[in-house]
Simulated assay, not measured.
Amino acid sequence: MRLWHQALLPLLPRAQILGQHRECCALRGKGWGKKHSTVNYVFTHSYKKLVDYHFLVLKEMEHRGYTPDPKWYSPEYRGKNIGPWPNLLIKEASQLDNTTIFPEHNKDYLEECIANLRQKGIDLKVPFPGDSCSS
């Protein structure tokens, strides 16, 4: 379980972007609050931040020609087997593009994600986003 640094989303291979969608769906659903060392930081923030991050994943999937279930575009939706999250608001996509959603997604975390991908045989050419990553 991992949420890739958001700067990597446009660069992730097919399997990783689709896996990221599944991970977000699981976390938005019954996985919310279930501890796991690589995603525990998510639960220290509002649920809305996870929805905002998932929206970026959905946007990237659309960009690649995938058509995720439209239900996931509703911020309140948590999956088939769990009720909606009430009264949740989400930013527009244009407001999210240059915003770091999780402060933990800093330059060190970006480097950690790149190293993790390399261990999987994925060598991305990543321009380090100096201004868009907080240190």
Rank of each mutant, 00 (worst) to 15 (best):
T99G: 08
H63T: 13
M1Y: 07
K49S: 05
T67Y: 11
I122P: 05
E23C: 09
C133I: 14
L110P: 11
L96P: 10
L88P: 08
E76D: 11
K49F: 01
P129C: 00
S46A: 13
R28F: 01
A15F: 07
H105G: 03
H5R: 03
L11K: 10
E92C: 10
K59P: 02
D123G: 04
I82P: 02
Y66I: 04
K125F: 07
G19T: 07
A115C: 12
K91N: 14
E111H: 15
L89G: 13
S134Q: 10
G65T: 08
D123H: 14
E104K: 15
P129F: 09
N98Q: 10
L117M: 11
G130C: 14
H21G: 00
D131M: 12
S46V: 03
G121F: 06
K59M: 10
R14V: 02
E112R: 14
E111C: 08
H63W: 12
E62D: 14
K30I: 05
V42H: 06
L117Q: 03
G19E: 00
P68L: 01
G65A: 07
G33T: 05
G79Y: 05
H63Q: 13
P10A: 02
H36T: 06
G83R: 11
G83E: 11
V57K: 02
L117Y: 03
K71S: 12
P86G: 05
E76A: 15
Q95E: 15
L50S: 02
C113S: 10
H105Q: 10
L96R: 10
C133R: 08
I101K: 08
R28E: 00
P103H: 08
Q16D: 14
Y109W: 03
K80R: 15
P10N: 05
I90P: 11
R14I: 00
C113G: 06
I101R: 05
I17V: 12
A7K: 04
P86I: 06
Y47R: 15
H5E: 10
N81I: 01
S74F: 08
Y77H: 12
Y77G: 10
L3C: 00
L124K: 11
S74N: 15
L56I: 03
K71P: 06
I122Q: 01
L3H: 02
P68H: 07
L11P: 02
C25P: 02
R64M: 07
R78T: 06
E92T: 12
P10S: 06
Q6T: 07
K107D: 09
D52F: 03
E104P: 10
H45M: 01
L9C: 08
Q20S: 14
H54A: 00
E112V: 06
G121C: 08
P68F: 03
I90V: 15
L117K: 00
V126E: 07
N87Y: 15
L18V: 08
R22K: 06
P129L: 00
A26C: 13
H5M: 02
V57P: 01
H54V: 02
N40I: 04
Q6G: 03
